[in-house]
Design a protein around this nucleic acid. Sequence first.
DNA 1: CGGGATCCCTTAGGATACTG
DNA 2: CAGTATCCTAAGGGATCCCG
Lengths: 213, 213
Amino acid sequence: MAARDYGQYSGITRAMELVGERWALLIVRDLLVGPRRYSELAAGLPRIPSNILAARLKELQAAGVLRRAPRSRVIVYELTPYGRELEPVVLALGAWGFKAMGEPRQEQIITPESMTIDLRTAFRSDVASALPATAYAGRFGSTELLIRVDGRALDVTPGDGPADLVFAAGPDIRRLISGELAADRAIATGVIEVLRGPGGLLDRFASTFHLAA
Amino acid sequence: MAARDYGQYSGITRAMELVGERWALLIVRDLLVGPRRYSELAAGLPRIPSNILAARLKELQAAGVLRRAPRSRVIVYELTPYGRELEPVVLALGAWGFKAMGEPRQEQIITPESMTIDLRTAFRSDVASALPATAYAGRFGSTELLIRVDGRALDVTPGDGPADLVFAAGPDIRRLISGELAADRAIATGVIEVLRGPGGLLDRFASTFHLAA
DNA sequence: CGGGATCCCTTAGGATACTG
DNA sequence: CAGTATCCTAAGGGATCCCG
């Protein structure tokens, strides 16, 4: 028996043995957004030691969660189909943890990958399907995301592009998503800064992305 | 910043900080079945050192996941409402890990709590709602469970009681739940031993509890 | 006897430096 | 860029002991 084995024959213990190590599910989360290179993963995971990242990648590969794929002279890591099946786990954890997020601390960062998954977590496809297709461009610190909502589909990509509403937000956008702060109040208090487009669209954004606290 | 902090401001990292430590989610899983005493938790978690169990209970209490509750001279640990909201996380992890369960190893045990959650994971309420109410009594090694299905409701309790079908099964019951083995084959090969009641009911059991691998 | 606390040892994780 | 190598600290594992 491996030292870090749980000694039980059940689904959860098996899952914990495969992806329960520290950092593992965060690597999976970032790869849920798309394939990533080693250095991209390292950049998105602040403070992960490179030896730990290397060790986790090997373990997750051995577990059948991800694979190394050569892409024209560089190597990227991508989830296997089985690894992608962790999405419900990651989203459920994200939804639960969202409710316990306090105020951001100084050194805490928001990465494009973490924001993308947080938006996916909060996305209400049934609400969105009743609204017209809308593209938002959000600037969160130094990361910029193009958020396209069309029917029940959500697509989040880095960078900008044609958007109906362009806004800049800090970590306090959480209070908009949780419903703690209404859209007009968010604008009035400067939590959200509308850079272009009708500010009224922010209310639609808040309806589309909502996660009660 | 705490040493085991992930340095990100996102839902998942917050969740991992609260319940991402080793053993934590297994404690939560057992408490999802019902309140438990310290010694009951220790018994259900083979190989957990007592100092680690004590440390986790304190951390989870500080995180607002569980609380100590005095029950007539003894102390039990029970989930808070917020802790119970981890059920989707635990079930999602269980469903994912179930598919990666290989053959059981000699020293791996099945506890009443782990089996209860595994059954909850595999429970198909929509299938069950179309079937007549049924009570099963299952013996898994030394643990005995009374499994009552009524409409969309599932109730699993330790011990026995009046049941339509009484059977004994080893860890290979996983192959019945995964659909790898049909009910009649499971009986014919001795994977499941029908102790009382019509063996045909095992097919209903397999329809009610199913998780594709 | 339930509910831990203590001790000692092993191993994983963190920080930093280095290399093909 | 994509990792190794090294060193050190902190957490986990196992056994034992303690206390109400």
